[in-house]
Write a protein that binds this DNA or RNA. Structure first.
Lengths: 250, 250
DNA sequence: CTTGACATTAACGTTACGTTAAGGTGTAAG
DNA sequence: CTTACACCTTAACGTAACGTTAATGTCAAG
C-alpha cells in the first residue's frame, strides 16, 4: 500500500488550482495539511485529496467557502436545505440576468438605430411595459390599458405620419441641444407644455400627476430612455427634471 | 429660476443610494461635487443629479464603475461597442448559471431520494451525458453511443431487476462504510474488480483505460456522483481513487 | 557547488461600498 | 443662549476569495 503523500504543488495541480488557493484553505481552516514537517512544508495525503475534491464540487456551484466548511466538517449538516436555499439565490441571479440582458439588447438596438422603435411600439410600450404593474398600482383604473393603442389605431396612416413627426420635433425641443441649459428654461418648459397637450390630444386623457409618472418611466425604461439619450447624453434625466418642474408649476 | 442645490443626503435619497456611495464616487472621480464650501460640505446641483442618474442607469446593468466613468466622461467613447462586449459577459454568466441550476437540481433530486435515477437513466446518462463530447474525444469510435442502451433494452424486466440489485450492492461495497479506509484496501479493490467485470458482462466492452475515464466522469457528473455521495460523503472521489488504483495495478 | 524548481511567511491589491469612530456644523426649540 | 439633534467631515478597517509580488529558505540533480 503506497503511502501517497503530495506536496502543495502536486495536490494543487491535481485539483486544478493554484498553491495560493491551497494555502488559503489552510488559513481559513477549510483544508488542513495532513502533516507539516520540520522544514515547514505542507504535506497532504489521499484523504486530503478526497476532501479537496469534495470542496471543488461545491465551489463549482458558487457556494461560499464558509458554507462548504460546514458541509465538509459536519456530517449531520442539513445539506439538502442548504442546497435548496442556494438554489433560490441562483434563481434570483438568473432572473435578474435575464432582465439585464433584455434591457441591454433594447439599449443596443436603439443606439445602433437598426431597431428604431416605431410609434406604434412606442405607445404599445406604455400599455405593455414591464412597469405596467407599477403604473396600475399608482393610477388604478383611471388609466385605461388599451386606451392609447385604440386611439392610435383610429388614425389614418397619413395622420399617423404627421403625429409621429410632431412627436419627434417635440422630443428634440424638450431635450434641447445645449448641455449647459437648465430644464427650467422657458424654451424647454414651452416644449414640455406642448408635449403635454400633444399627449392629451392624440393619446391619453392624462393629468399632471400621470404626466409626471410617465416621465419617471421614460427614465427607468430603456426603451424610452434611449430616445432621449440619443439626442444628447443625459437627455432622459434632463427631460424628467423638466417635466417635474412643469408639473410643479402648473 | 431656482438655483437648486442639494446636500449629499438629499441627492443620495433622490438617487436611492447612501451618502457613502456619493462620497465614494467623489473619491474615484466619478461624480465630483458642484461646490465645496468653507465648512467642507459637498454641494451638488441639477447637472450633478442628471449625471448621477446616468451613472445609476449603467450601474444597474452591472457595468464596472471604471467603464461608467469612461462613458460619462468622454462623449466620444464607443458606448455601443462597450455594451456589446458587456453583453457577452452577461451571456456567459447566464449560460453558466443555467448549468449550475441543472446540476443543483439533479443533486437535490438525488439527495432527496425522490428522483432516484433509474438504471435506464443511469446508463442513458453515459450515452447522453453533458460530457459526451469529452468521452468521444478521448475514445473516439471504440465507444458505441447506443451500445449500452441497446444491451440494456435486450434484457427482460426480471433480468433488469437482478442486474440493478447487483449494481447497488457493488456500489455499496466499492464505497465502503469506513471513512478511514483506503481506496487500495483489498476488499475495496475486490469490489472494483467485480464491478469492472459486471460492466463488461452486462453493458460495455470496456478496457481499463475506458474504465478509468468512467470513474472520472462519475466524479465530475453530479448525476453519478450523488449515487456515491449518498452512501458516504466523499464517496465519489473515493471510488475514483479506487478505480484508478485498480487500473494502475492491472 | 551551483542551479533551478519548489517551499515558506508577510503583506498589499482587487470591487464597491458598509460600518464604526471621533469630531465639526447648522438649525430649531426651549 | 444653550441644548438637542440631525447632519456633515475624514480616517480607517471589513468584506470574498484569492492574485501578486517580495524576501527568504529548501531540495534534488548535474
Amino acid at each position: 500500500m503506497s503511502d501517497t503523500t503530495y506536496t502543495i504543488k502536486q495536490i494543487a495541480d491535481i485539483a486544478g488550482v493554484t498553491t495560493r488557493t491551497i494555502r488559503y484553505y489552510d488559513q481559513i481552516d477549510l483544508l488542513k495539511p495532513a502533516d507539516i514537517r520540520v522544514n515547514g512544508y505542507r504535506y497532504y495525503d489521499r484523504s486530503s485529496l478526497l476532501r479537496l475534491q469534495q470542496i471543488m464540487f461545491f465551489r463549482e456551484l458558487d457556494l461560499p467557502l464558509e458554507d462548504i466548511r460546514s458541509i465538509v466538517n459536519r456530517p449531520d449538516f442539513d445539506l439538502i436545505d442548504a442546497l435548496k436555499k442556494h438554489r433560490i439565490t441562483l434563481q434570483k441571479q438568473q432572473t435578474r440576468l435575464q432582465r439585464l440582458l433584455r434591457t441591454l439588447d433594447q439599449t443596443i438596438d436603439s443606439l445602433t438605430g437598426t431597431g428604431e422603435m416605431s410609434e406604434k411600439d412606442y405607445f404599445a410600450g406604455f400599455d405593455q411595459s414591464q412597469y405596467e404593474e407599477e403604473v396600475r398600482a399608482r393610477w388604478g383604473n383611471t388609466y385605461q390599458t388599451t386606451q392609447s393603442q385604440q386611439k392610435w389605431a383610429s388614425y389614418s396612416p397619413q395622420q399617423q405620419e404627421e403625429i409621429k413627426a410632431q412627436s419627434g420635433q417635440l422630443i428634440m425641443r424638450m431635450v434641447g441641444s445645449d448641455p449647459s441649459a437648465s430644464p427650467e428654461d422657458a424654451a424647454i418648459q414651452q416644449a414640455v407644455g406642448e408635449y403635454f397637450d400633444y399627449l392629451n390630444r392624440y393619446f391619453y386623457t392624462c393629468d399632471l400627476e400621470f404626466f409626471r409618472g410617465l416621465a419617471d418611466m421614460w427614465v427607468s425604461d430603456p426603451r424610452f430612455a434611449v430616445n432621449y439619450e440619443r439626442v444628447r447624453p443625459g437627455g432622459a434625466a434632463f427631460v424628467r427634471e423638466a417635466v417635474h418642474h412643469y408639473c410643479d408649476t402648473h
